[in-house]
Amino acid sequence: MSTFFEKLKAYSKPGYYEKFDYHWTMTIDLDRCTGCEACVVACQAENNLPIVGEKQFARSREIKWIRIERYWEGDYPDVKMGFIPMLCQHCDDAPCETACPVFATYHNQDGLNTQIYNRCIGTRTCAVYCPYDVRYFNWFTYTWDEPLEQQLNPDVTVREKGVMEKCTFCIQRIRIAKDNAKDDDRRRVRDGEVVPACVQSCPTEAMVFGDSNDPDARVTKMMKNPRGYTVLKELNTTPSIVYLKKAQS
């Protein structure tokens, strides 16, 4: 009985995510980012993202789990252009998660903000609640023409119409790494063992991915960089992605 009440007490407090095994985190160094969009293409190939076509793109219905946002600063002779890759921030206090009536999105034990396509009923509330606009809705059932369906990644589901989707931090790769770690009788996944498609394809190595619960991981060291910041910090969503500010000369 006492354990029951202890459990009840523990469950009435927030902050359980600190106790998770892994806390997958990414850092993106904006000083290194050239805006080449290799990550966008890699993500599209890895995660079976549909090509919506010209007409739907014009109606801004494209599906890009990671996108490069461009911002312009200053007036004509002195124009500066900045890039910021925007993907799901995997917030610890994600506004989207509480919104879902059917638990289609929740926080898993790796500190990931997951989206379960099978449960989704398509209320699209999560997309409205997301301040980063990184959730994408399947307006139609998209198909792949022959022989393009041969290139689909067998580790990732193909989504049907009426389902929300977003960046998963390549959860299929995380699963494989964790399975391998388990098979090798290792306790934890080694740093650098999991590399999401976007990180893998970045030519300038602007992105670093790892487990921030591991004090020796490269990402943990990168996070301590004084240039680091999180997007829309004032909303207290505590994102898992830390951006490193562009160095000013």
């Binding site: 469950y11 009435s12 407090k13 902050g15 995510y17 917030c91 994600a94 506004p95 998660e97």
Partner: peptide, 19 residues
């Protein structure tokens, strides 16, 4: 429901009283 399916959402507690 909350205790049967321990599905954390939004950094909230498992038993969130106000909602």
């Amino acid at each position: 429901t909350a205790l049967t399916f321990i599905l954390p959402t939004g950094g909230r507690a498992i038993i969130t009283v106000p909602p």
